[in-house]
Design a protein around this nucleic acid. Structure first.
Lengths: 84, 84
DNA sequence: GTAACATTTAGACGTTCATCTAAATATCTA
DNA sequence: TAGATATTTAGATGAACGTCTAAATGTTAC
C-alpha cells in the first residue's frame, strides 16, 4: 500500500496514469507529453510498475504500457474503506 | 491536490488520520501511539493541516486535532473521478 | 511571577527522491 | 553484420523529506 501512495505522490506519475486511462501507450508516445528526459520517464514508469499500477509489454521495438485496471479497483476499495 | 497526495504518502500520517477517524485527539493523545518525538509529530500534523486534511483548535493548554470530514468527501470524489 | 506542562519552531543531519548525462541493451532494417 | 531507433541502467547532483535536540511559545496553577 505504501508503494501506491508513494507512486501517486508525484504529479508527473499521476499525469502518466491519466494518459494511460485513455489508451495504452509506448514510452515514446508518453514522452511527448512531458518535458523530462527518457531516463527520468523510465524511472517514473518503473515506480508505477513496482506499485502494480501499470503493466508493460514489449511489442517489437517498442514497449507498451497499460493501466492495471484490476489493481485500480482494489485501490478504490481501500481508499473507500480508509476515508469513509 | 498535490499537497494531499504528498501528505498521504507517509505511513505515520496515514496512521494519524486513521486515529482521528475514530475521535478528536490532542497532540499528547496522538503521541502515545507513535515512537517519534513531539517535534516530529508536530511536523506531520502541520503537513496534514496544510493539506486541509485536519483542523486544529486550542482547548486551554491542549490543542485538539480533528479530521476535516468535508475535505475528505471532496477527496473521495476526486479519487473516484481519477480512478474510474 | 514562577514553575510545570503542552505544543511548536529553529536548525542540523542523514536518507530518499527527481532529475540529468552517458553508456548499455534490445529490436528492426538494409 | 552495421546502423538507426527505443528503452533502460548506472552513476552523479541538488532538493525535499523525516527525524532529532534544543530552545521558544502558550497556558495553567500555585
Amino acid at each position: 500500500m505504501d508503494s501506491v501512495f508513494k507512486a501517486l505522490s508525484d504529479k508527473n506519475r499521476r499525469d502518466i496514469l491519466s494518459l494511460l486511462k485513455k489508451k495504452d501507450m509506448t514510452v515514446g508516445e508518453i514522452k511527448k507529453h512531458f518535458k523530462i528526459t527518457g531516463a527520468s520517464l523510465s524511472h517514473h514508469l518503473d515506480i508505477l510498475k513496482r506499485a502494480n499500477l501499470v503493466t508493460a509489454e514489449r511489442d517489437g521495438q517498442f514497449i507498451k504500457y497499460s493501466l492495471n485496471v484490476s489493481v485500480f479497483e482494489e485501490i478504490m476499495k481501500l481508499f473507500y474503506k480508509f476515508f469513509k
